[in-house]
Design a protein around this nucleic acid. Structure first.
Lengths: 144, 144
DNA sequence: TAAGTACAGGTCTTTGAAAACATATCATTG
DNA sequence: CAATGATATGTTTTCAAAGACCTGTACTTA
């Protein structure tokens, strides 16, 4: 469903949401260790997200990544779009470039609804909400 | 959503369903030309599907690929599973190996419903049905 | 208080593996 | 034998991953 890069991005952001605040920033090593992801790869992804304003960061000693009031409000849809683009939400399931309402591919109408549901689900989920939810129920981000 | 191989497979099978019958078999060249796919690549995919019994084929002069009563009944879900496996239907959205009902990832419950819908949509669509539908409405399989 | 220095994110380049695509050869059948 | 699917192997492209190096921040210290 998502690209590997995208799943790492989501997991990293969820990890940050759970552990980091303005006065408690997380280093790349901590994040990579916390979600079992390659360090350099997660660094690259987070810098990409930071550039687009989805996560806050600070250089220097005791620096790191964190969420403030602004960045904490970003949705999972924002993350997916920043990493994978919006092909998941708008592209043709069969990869046909000219597929449209007027000239639909055989799967067009079936998948239009499903795509919308996926988009809605991701749009309605803010990182700030996960923060509490994650503390309550048992949800893992590690892969081993 | 699907891999590139998978979209080619679906398009090829839809093309066969529309044009081929037991007494009118389609060669690889015709199929490749009909859906704008690389010839040898589509051959490999169809042989894979043929091996798994999703499409009928015959060697020799005036041979080719076609659908009979048995193969015509296969669903789009069969094709997707044969090519991409069933990771799309069962795998974790975040790629977590231990994600389960008991230890769900943060997206588990949201996506369980969506996955099921995708599976249902693909399962309920038989190639034989598309045959008529395609003849009625204007649906393209080419990409240029 | 202003250089110096260590720390941590940011950028760019290179490597490695896998997916996508192509070529050549073999096997089957009318 | 000729047409056509089956198989095996090779090439290209893409993307995940790693490495080396740059830039900004904050603390130290004379």
């Amino acid at each position: 469903m998502f690209s590997k890069t995208c799943t790492y991005a989501i997991r990293a952001m969820l990890f940050i949401a759970r552990h980091a605040e303005t006065d408690n920033k997380l280093g790349i090593k901590e994040i990579a260790g916390g979600i079992d992801a390659p360090e350099h790869f997660i660094a690259k992804i987070l810098q990409q997200l930071s550039k687009k304003g989805l996560v806050s960061s600070l250089k220097g000693p005791s620096g790191g990544f964190y969420l403030d009031k602004k960045t904490g409000k970003c949705t999972l849809a924002d993350i997916v779009q920043a990493v994978d683009g919006d092909s998941l939400f708008t592209g043709c399931a069969l990869g046909l470039s000219h597929c449209s309402e007027q000239y639909p591919c055989p799967l067009h109408h079936e998948f239009k609804k499903i795509r919308k549901e996926i988009h809605e689900a991701l749009k309605s989920t803010r990182l700030s909400e996960f923060n509490e939810e994650l503390l309550q129920q048992f949800t893992y981000l590690k892969n081993r």
